[in-house]
Nucleic acid binder design. Sequence first.
DNA 1: CGCGCAATCTTGTCATCGACAAGATGACAG
DNA 2: CTGTCATCTTGTCGATGACAAGATTGCGCG
Lengths: 179, 179
Amino acid sequence: MASYHHGDLRRVLLGTAADAIAESGPAALSLRELARRAGVSHAAPAHHFGDKAGLLTAFATQGFDLLADALRQAGDDLLDTGVAYVGFAVRHRAHFDVMFRPELYRAGDPELAAARARSGELLRGGVARHTGREPDADALAAWSIVHGFATLWLSGALPPRVGDDPEAAARTVIRRLFD
Amino acid sequence: MASYHHGDLRRVLLGTAADAIAESGPAALSLRELARRAGVSHAAPAHHFGDKAGLLTAFATQGFDLLADALRQAGDDLLDTGVAYVGFAVRHRAHFDVMFRPELYRAGDPELAAARARSGELLRGGVARHTGREPDADALAAWSIVHGFATLWLSGALPPRVGDDPEAAARTVIRRLFD
DNA sequence: CGCGCAATCTTGTCATCGACAAGATGACAG
DNA sequence: CTGTCATCTTGTCGATGACAAGATTGCGCG
């Protein structure tokens, strides 16, 4: 074993990174630990991603793509879009944790910027369809409330009384925005 | 020089940590770098804080106290309270960055829990006074929207069109919640 | 078929870091 | 003046990220 040409290392490393980050956060991520889990040498990850920031750049890009998928699947309804945003954050906690921490990766990377723009467009589109108004302020308010709820939920800062179903709680909260 | 008994090391280290974290984020924080900036030996910080998590626990505690001060100064108006929350995040970026990342510190620390409870009470109080309703859902929505806006602002994710005055933009956004 | 080339992965190394242990210094009490 | 204790230093260890150099393998091209 330890055969050269693993063949799928890049994809495996990204998957392993998701597990590791979900367990202990992006700060505790270690390239060598990833290599160990994947059964390759300690320097193998560097070949595919250059360095740690490179790996996290690829990881964040994957995250923005996954978010775009989730928002597309949610359909046209703004409430559903918001719930889907929170659902994405909970289900892909590791990606979400990295995506909005640009000091961890290369925010100027073209692929990443493209993926981020795609998901941002989906978010703004949903808001525009719902309100009919100039979407700027409404989109910002909607984005803020779902992003804030997701962040607070993931950080464990919310009191237990909120319950254990983040998407149901998010639905209630988002509704306050359109009372 | 290198006189023993610096006398004020603990406070100086917390201040230096604020600078360092504001520059490169909590992940890049190095105890040895703090020691260098403070002009003490590489092991001096450990004496006061035990380890890195200990330092960040103290730092987060200080943050929750600063947040409570800021909310108190904002007075009774809910809109002002929300704007103050965002203002705190922008003005004390380093503290805010750490406070809601419990994997970096000892979330169970008694002093920290007390400080967090104090600031949380101020937040909930402001909402209850404003709406008169059962504060749970309203408080959660208000907290989410200001926390989300602050987080997005700090992460640089917001489009330039939002402007360069976070508190003014926050005021506009929060108003959407009570239209 | 086989030769060379390039992508993939390994081994080795260095500076830095967090944590720990042991010792030096000096403030302060009695 | 002396002992005690908090404060700080020096020394060390294992782990990490980054880099350099080399080994292995798949693949195209003659």
